[in-house]
Computed example of a mutant assay.
Amino acid sequence: MPMLDGKVAIVTGAGGGIGREIALAMALAGAKVVVNDIGASLTGLGETSATPGEQTKAIIEQRGGAAVVNTDSVSDWDSARRIVASAIDAFGRVDIVVNNAGILRDQIFHKMTPEEWRAVIDVHLNGSFYVSRAAAEHFRAQSSGAYVHMTSTSGLIGNFGQANYSAAKLGIVALSKSIALDMQRFGVRSNCIAPFAWSRMTSSIPAETPEQQARVEKLKRMTPEKNAPLAVFLASDQAKDISGQVFAARNNEIFLMTQSRPARSAHRSEGWTPELIAEHAMPALRSGFMPLDRSGEVFSWDPV
């Protein structure tokens, strides 16, 4: 029996890239799929179109699957509720939510505008909350459900020029953990994937210097479909005991990412003054400081 037989999945941002590959993989695994995509540009600006979503739907149907297209935006509460309603209207239930929709407005921090900040937060973080919250009512009523959220090593580790994106993606990790804690008693699970792939979301990475060009060539080898098997597994009943975790998928590698825990401590029974902190606490803690590195410096080896 297919791993997602009888399930209904919502995949946001499924008109291309990672979202499309996840939608296709879930359909092949037996799920009926709501293909959500507004069909906008990478920045979220300009004209919208149903064409990307319709293309994904057509591929699913050509392979014998079932899908409907939804073009509502995740970044609005009422619109997000319509996304979930489209699953109920078309297929009678919802079992899986994949929060994948995203935009980029990269800008160095001291030049980032409030509009650039809000636009990215609205789609990634607020959108993940809105769609998840709308589905939660159904998950609770049926005592089952699975969330798969797309985070990023830009948030987990760091990157240049992405304060808005990084903050949103790390916020999604906290959102996922909170969902996992709050909805565990209803049989609902919530996990994150930090995907590695060359797609529209990464095509804006600079490739001007030889080092940058080499990095881009490495990324191009990591195609979007490499992330889909992990998403299918986490959405399936075979992952029924996995919740609140953060994974990364990098070509043929799967990583379990650490989450924040105390690394070192310093204690003084009489308490601390600023001077004593400088003299004793910081020297004791310094060896545990995290470096100011970026995702590419932590994942420095070639993908296998």
Rank of each mutant, 00 (worst) to 15 (best):
A101G: 10
M183F: 15
S190L: 08
N227H: 09
E61S: 13
L156Q: 11
D241M: 06
G271F: 05
L24D: 01
P52Y: 06
A31I: 01
N191A: 02
V216F: 07
T43Y: 02
A29I: 10
M201S: 14
K111V: 02
L104P: 00
F255H: 15
I103C: 03
G30K: 05
H124P: 07
T56L: 00
M112E: 05
E116H: 09
F160S: 14
K32D: 15
Q259W: 03
G171S: 14
T258D: 08
N126K: 05
L45H: 12
D95C: 03
G19K: 09
D293E: 15
A163T: 13
T223I: 13
R268P: 02
A90R: 04
T56C: 01
V173A: 03
P274V: 12
G17C: 09
G127M: 05
L156R: 06
R63V: 11
R250C: 07
S190C: 02
S265G: 08
S300E: 14
A174Y: 08
S260P: 08
V246W: 02
E297S: 10
K169H: 12
S300D: 13
P210W: 13
V298H: 05
A23H: 04
A207G: 04
D95G: 08
N100I: 08
F186Q: 12
I254F: 07
M201N: 09
P114M: 10
D76V: 12
G46T: 14
M282S: 06
V131C: 06
N252I: 07
A25P: 02
T209M: 07
R268Y: 11
E211T: 12
L230W: 00
I18R: 04
S243N: 04
E115Q: 15
M112Q: 10
G244T: 10
L181M: 14
A231L: 05
V188W: 00
A248F: 01
G15M: 07
N100V: 10
F91H: 09
M290T: 09
A134H: 01
E217R: 13
A29M: 07
K220M: 13
R261H: 11
I88R: 02
R215F: 15
M290P: 00
F186V: 14
D37I: 12
I59C: 00
N227S: 10
S75F: 00
K220Y: 04
T153Y: 05
A23V: 11
N227C: 11
I242G: 09
F139A: 11
L104E: 06
S144F: 01
A194F: 00
I83H: 03
G127P: 04
I108W: 03
Q184G: 06
N100Q: 07
I205K: 01
L45D: 15
E225L: 07
T12G: 06
A168L: 14
S132V: 03
T223N: 01
I179Q: 14
I88Q: 02
V68H: 02
S75G: 09
L276K: 13
L156V: 13
I38E: 03
Q245A: 11
H267V: 15
P262H: 13
V98K: 09
D37S: 12
A87V: 08
S203Y: 04
A263W: 04
A135G: 04
K177R: 14
Q142K: 12
S144N: 11
A239S: 03
E217A: 15
Q213M: 13
A281Q: 04
S144T: 10
G39P: 04
A50T: 07
N252T: 15
E217F: 07
G244L: 09
I242M: 07
W272C: 11
L175W: 05
